[in-house]
Amino acid sequence: MAELQTGSIATREEELLADFEVFDDWADRYRYLIELGEGLPALAPEHKTEANKVQGCQSQVWLVAKKADGRIYFDADSDSAITRGLIALLVRLFSGATANEIGGANLSIIERLGFAKHLSMSRANGFASMIQMIKRLASQS
């Protein structure tokens, strides 16, 4: 499972914002996003199933959730570098949170990072689908 994250989702949002604010232009932010994806552990082949696939993404994205000690942990993968970075960002944001924390997350990070303006329409829709699946998996746990 993904590494244990500490702090609330809001705290993690602030940390991610600080990480991205170091970069002045979007080319550098995209490179950082790709680096986040490169740091995501590979998902075991047996988890790359249709049931674990995020629907609504142009790229292939798989997401797995496990519950332990009242918290939900996510593992994910994608066949696209930028999309893998996006799901890595979400794993970093949500993994280790409770179902209530995930369900009640404000997610202002999307607008605050500028993703709404800088992602293509299909990527933005896919990103929203990833968030929906994370929230759905959390509510089922």
Results as ranks from 00 to 15, higher is better:
residue 84 R to G: 01
residue 35 E to W: 04
residue 17 L to R: 04
residue 53 K to T: 14
residue 71 R to L: 12
residue 93 L to W: 08
residue 116 A to Q: 07
residue 65 A to C: 07
residue 109 I to V: 01
residue 24 D to V: 06
residue 11 T to K: 15
residue 105 A to W: 01
residue 71 R to W: 13
residue 92 R to P: 14
residue 13 E to D: 11
residue 23 F to P: 08
residue 122 S to P: 13
residue 127 F to Q: 03
residue 78 S to D: 08
residue 34 I to F: 07
residue 106 N to Y: 04
residue 113 L to Y: 14
residue 15 E to P: 09
residue 104 G to M: 04
residue 87 I to T: 14
residue 80 S to Q: 07
residue 82 I to S: 06
residue 63 L to N: 01
residue 91 V to T: 10
residue 84 R to W: 00
residue 50 E to R: 09
residue 121 M to N: 15
residue 61 V to S: 00
residue 79 D to W: 03
residue 51 A to T: 11
residue 67 K to W: 08
residue 85 G to K: 10
residue 36 L to E: 07
residue 81 A to Y: 05
residue 28 D to G: 14
residue 97 A to R: 01
residue 22 V to A: 06
residue 18 A to P: 04
residue 70 G to M: 12
residue 83 T to F: 02
residue 107 L to I: 04
residue 58 Q to V: 11
residue 106 N to G: 09
residue 103 G to K: 09
residue 134 I to T: 06
residue 111 E to L: 07
residue 102 I to L: 02
residue 51 A to W: 03
residue 130 M to Y: 11
residue 32 Y to C: 10
residue 81 A to V: 08
residue 120 S to L: 08
residue 7 G to W: 05
residue 133 M to Y: 06
residue 88 A to L: 11
residue 51 A to P: 08
residue 111 E to K: 14
residue 64 V to S: 02
residue 94 F to S: 03
residue 90 L to R: 12
residue 80 S to P: 09
residue 7 G to Y: 05
residue 6 T to G: 04
residue 8 S to T: 15
residue 24 D to F: 06
residue 135 K to S: 01
residue 74 F to V: 01
residue 77 D to A: 01
residue 94 F to I: 05
residue 43 L to A: 01
residue 93 L to N: 09
residue 61 V to W: 00
residue 58 Q to Y: 01
residue 89 L to D: 08
residue 133 M to D: 08
residue 54 V to P: 14
residue 127 F to V: 06
residue 39 G to L: 13
residue 92 R to K: 15
